[in-house]
């Protein structure tokens, strides 16, 4: 059920401040695209505009050819995961994940038994079997992150939007989750757009990378394309660190790279 997402000349200003200045971006069905850029460059704003949480002043978002402007939030069927998880704090893990299914209009709402089966299946998928009766406060950061993801997946989204999914976690957990997310994406095949601050994360995970600066897309391409041919001086300086680190990593960690894990 994945669909391609097309963003056309999106513009959004807050008061006088332009956060998006004509952003265009194509994400193919089933593709995993990373949105990279310095703080304040408009990454969250772009994601929220695609989800329908922000009203852009100009431009278009298309889901598989349909203008999203004509769709309600429910009809968009977006799985959105916030930077801070935003779990429902007064609900158990089970009810958090079941929320989207139970919120459906009566006619299309699955029976409680089906909801239960689906929630347990998702819990298994995110490797949280047995934690359904916990409250969010009783979970670790990484566990909460996965509950948020399971909750987003429950509504069988056509597009997954992840805003710095691992932003609040420590480096080790991030690395684990990164791998896990890659695997999950391979299995489920959702069209996915995820925001990250972390250049390594972007280059390791994504099929393609879009680099945003000051509300403009500076370059879109695969890791090799961007590292090989930085389009602007900004990108050149932005990825310099990665290139150097990659080179160093190749030298120092080669003998242990496989053995370590």
């Amino acid at each position: 059920m994945s669909v391609p997402v097309r963003v056309r000349n999106l513009e959004k200003t807050f008061g006088r401040y332009p956060a998006l200045k004509g952003v265009s971006l194509d994400v193919e069905a089933g593709e995993l695209v990373a949105l990279l850029g310095p703080s304040g460059s408009g990454k969250t704003t772009l994601l929220r505009a695609i989800a329908g949480l922000e009203q852009p002043e100009a431009g278009q978002v298309l889901f598989g050819g349909i203008d999203a402007g004509s769709l309600s939030l429910r009809e968009r069927r977006i799985g959105f995961v916030f930077q801070q998880y935003a779990l429902f704090r007064h609900m158990k893990v089970f009810d958090n994940i079941a929320f989207g299914l139970r919120a459906r209009p009566r006619a299309s709402r699955p029976p409680e038994a089906a909801i239960k089966a689906r929630v347990l299946e998702l819990l298994h998928l995110v490797q949280l079997d047995g934690l359904e009766a916990r409250y969010p406060a009783q979970l670790s950061g990484g566990q909460r992150q996965r509950v948020a993801l399971a909750r987003a997946l429950a509504i069988e989204p056509r597009v997954l939007l992840l805003d710095e999914p691992f932003g609040a976690l420590d480096a080790r957990v991030r690395k684990d989750l990164r791998k896990w997310l890659r695997g999950l994406h391979q299995r489920t095949g959702h069209t996915t757009l995820f925001v990250t601050h972390d250049q390594d994360e972007a280059f390791e995970l994504a099929d393609r990378i879009a680099i945003l600066d000051h509300g403009r897309i500076e370059q879109v391409g695969t890791a090799a394309e961007i590292l090989g041919h930085p389009a602007t001086p900004f990108i050149d300086s932005f990825i310099e660190g990665i290139a150097r680190r990659e080179a160093r990593a190749r030298e120092w960690t080669k003998p242990h790279a496989v053995a370590g894990r």
């Binding site: 989800a51 949480l53 429910r74 989207g100």
Partner: peptide, 8 residues
């Protein structure tokens, strides 16, 4: 906002 994106 999460609830709304989940279709509530």
């Amino acid at each position: 906002e999460t609830a709304l994106t989940l279709g509530a």
